[in-house]
Amino acid sequence: MILEWLDAHLQILTVFWLFPIIFMFHDFEEMLTIEKWTKHHKEQVFKILPESIHKDFYSSFQMTTLQFAHDVFWIFLTITMSTVLAVLFSFTFLFLMLLAIFFGHVFTHIGQTLILKRYTPGVLTAIILVFPYSSYAYYRLLSEHIISGTEIFWSLIGAILILPILFLFLVHERNKATKTSYRI
């Protein structure tokens, strides 16, 4: 089967290092499409979002590709650092926390696409690359006893706790970068 073939042909180090690689393929799709897509679909998105959170998303719809790439760079650096820590020092907590966010991110892409009833930037690679990679990484790390279910649980708790902080930081930085104030 496919899992047996992957297990036989992918070393565990490769499974770890695929995380930053898959992340970049996914974010390349977003970078190539985000600016044009947001300009064309801003009104449709804002009609669906509750008015109380419009200000939190406004700057995201004013971003250029370069500004988005800047965000991606810092996320890529964090993912790469977490991979280095996991591979060299067997410190997997940060890696697992970021993997949980990455895995969950698939469902935000699918949800956006279903709600808007159209292509959304990143949905193709989320389904074709991110979901299979994340699922396989969890399977492989568990099957090789590199991580445990308890570690996954605590990394999920960490991801849930850190996501609101990351979101607020992202909104703040995007507002600074776009030098815009909310007005729709």
Score class of each variant (00 low, 15 high):
residue 164 P to N: 03
residue 30 E to A: 02
residue 82 S to V: 12
residue 108 T to M: 12
residue 59 S to L: 02
residue 101 I to L: 14
residue 3 L to H: 07
residue 136 Y to H: 07
residue 9 H to R: 12
residue 73 F to V: 09
residue 100 A to F: 08
residue 33 T to A: 10
residue 107 F to E: 13
residue 91 F to G: 12
residue 153 F to R: 11
residue 131 F to G: 11
residue 173 E to Q: 05
residue 3 L to N: 02
residue 141 L to Q: 08
residue 11 Q to V: 10
residue 45 V to E: 14
residue 133 Y to D: 14
residue 40 H to M: 15
residue 60 S to R: 00
residue 54 H to I: 10
residue 141 L to N: 08
residue 34 I to N: 03
residue 68 F to A: 03
residue 84 V to F: 15
residue 102 F to D: 11
residue 60 S to M: 08
residue 71 D to M: 06
residue 24 M to A: 03
residue 126 A to H: 01
residue 12 I to K: 05
residue 31 M to S: 10
residue 56 D to R: 05
residue 127 I to G: 13
residue 142 L to E: 02
residue 11 Q to T: 12
residue 119 Y to L: 10
residue 13 L to V: 09
residue 27 D to A: 02
residue 147 I to T: 05
residue 173 E to R: 06
residue 49 L to I: 11
residue 72 V to I: 09
residue 118 R to T: 14
residue 138 Y to D: 06
residue 100 A to E: 01
residue 130 V to A: 11
residue 132 P to F: 12
residue 6 L to I: 10
residue 61 F to T: 03
residue 117 K to Y: 00
residue 79 I to R: 06
residue 149 G to L: 10
residue 63 M to K: 01
residue 182 Y to L: 06
residue 166 L to W: 12
residue 8 A to K: 12
residue 143 S to Q: 12
residue 182 Y to I: 05
residue 180 T to P: 11
residue 143 S to T: 12
residue 6 L to V: 04
residue 101 I to R: 06
residue 44 Q to H: 11
residue 73 F to N: 01
residue 86 A to P: 12
residue 105 H to V: 10
residue 128 I to W: 04
residue 63 M to N: 03
residue 111 G to P: 08
residue 78 T to F: 13
residue 73 F to G: 00
residue 136 Y to V: 07
residue 82 S to H: 05
residue 84 V to S: 13
residue 168 L to R: 05
residue 156 L to R: 04
residue 91 F to Q: 15
residue 177 A to K: 01
residue 167 F to H: 00
residue 4 E to L: 11
residue 67 Q to N: 02
residue 112 Q to H: 13
residue 22 I to S: 02
residue 53 I to S: 09
residue 38 T to D: 12
residue 88 L to F: 15
residue 4 E to D: 07
residue 131 F to T: 06
residue 47 K to Q: 15
residue 156 L to G: 04
residue 63 M to W: 02
residue 28 F to H: 04
residue 28 F to Q: 07
residue 66 L to E: 06
residue 107 F to S: 09
residue 120 T to P: 08
residue 67 Q to D: 06
residue 180 T to C: 11
residue 43 E to N: 14
residue 28 F to S: 06
residue 54 H to P: 08
residue 30 E to F: 03
